[in-house]
Design a protein around this nucleic acid. Structure first.
Lengths: 193, 193
DNA sequence: TGAATACGTTCACTTAAGTTAAGAAATGAT
DNA sequence: ATCATTTCTTAACTTAAGTGAACGTATTCA
């Protein structure tokens, strides 16, 4: 399991055995069951997550309805807004599947950064890279229709459509579950016709 | 003008005079006229921008139509996707108003980082913070209607509605200019009625 | 200054998403 | 295995966004 992590890191920086050991000694691995809630609205938490295996999601409850806005799968990192802003969380985080996560918090990060400055470089690069990806995603979302967004998702993250319930996908696409059903039927119609 | 920059930085880290001088000696200030194009689709560039004064925007040309997806105003930093990905740009960047920008590139950043590690910390924090903000923005976009998005913008960035043409705002809100006109009329109707 | 272009609004019409409700299918718990 | 709950789909109706076109009003620039 740790190998997955080090393979991932090696794409960005090279680590000595000392550094690997430091990470392992500080890192907290956590197994979580499908449906488990990692963070609730209103709670304060300092935990960030790196998904080694499985899938977690962010959702809001607005007017009593769940609105899923993001999924994180293998080799993706999620630092909740409340950790950065030091404020109560606006959203929930829960497990879509049984998952294995690497849990971090700012204190642990600070310790790593001071011992191994290289590690701060890694975090900076990851943040910059993820920010760039996030912006492209947002741009695509803004400039396309729900139907285009779904077709886009089919191509870019076909796994998500398999592993995630439709009603969660719907709000991820910015629409209602009924509209997603209809839209899927419409696309099938087009392919057949 | 430099004071603006240092006041901003001082919110995150404290700088010695040496460090300030290093920034000034490496930094490139650039005055740009309204309408000037900083980056074109297909171009490769290594320049990142920090807006000291004015407003710049990102837009795509899709099927011959301009689609504006982002605005950057005072004290906001924009590192184009193509700088991170080392690939040709998918979008254009242009000046909405006469602006004063601080231009940076990866080489200059690397030099700063090695001389003053503190500066890498600043960049990491800014990237993390901006990422968190960006995600909240995206979440709000996904979970609200065009009308709600516009009302939201009225409250959060009223300045944008003043300084930016309607048709650019429209695509920023994910709709057509005609729909924005209609939506504004609808809101006025509600206030009157 | 005058012609051309770009911009914002309005209108009629089309298309698709939201809403409400019902029922079928899948899932989970006892 | 059965019952209850959740999830997904379908349908009819409402509402709002997309489309194409026209019109008045800036802006631009030759």
């Amino acid at each position: 399991m740790q190998d997955l992590l080090f393979d991932f890191i090696s794409k960005y920086i090279s680590l000595t055995d000392d550094e690997k050991n430091a990470i392992v000694s500080l890192a907290l691995f956590r197994q979580v069951k499908k449906g488990a809630i990692l963070l609730k609205e209103g709670e304060k938490s300092n935990d960030g997550y790196f998904v080694l295996k499985g899938c977690i999601r962010i959702y809001y409850i607005i007017d009593g309805e769940e609105k899923t806005t993001a999924f994180y799968t293998e080799m993706e990192a999620l630092t909740p807004h409340c950790v950065i802003q030091k404020a109560p969380s606006e959203y929930y985080i829960s497990c879509v599947e049984d998952s294995i996560l690497l849990v971090s918090d700012p204190d642990m990060e600070a310790e790593m950064f001071s011992k191994f400055p290289k590690f701060e470089t890694l975090c900076r690069i990851l943040a910059e890279e993820f920010l760039a990806k996030q912006q492209i995603n947002f741009d695509e979302f803004k400039t396309s229709s729900p139907e285009q967004r779904y077709i886009n998702l089919l191509q870019k993250r076909p796994d998500l459509i398999q592993r995630v319930p439709q009603h969660q996908l719907a709000s991820f696409l910015g629409i209602k579950p009924q509209s997603l059903s209809r839209l899927r039927a419409r696309i099938l119609e087009k392919i057949k016709g």
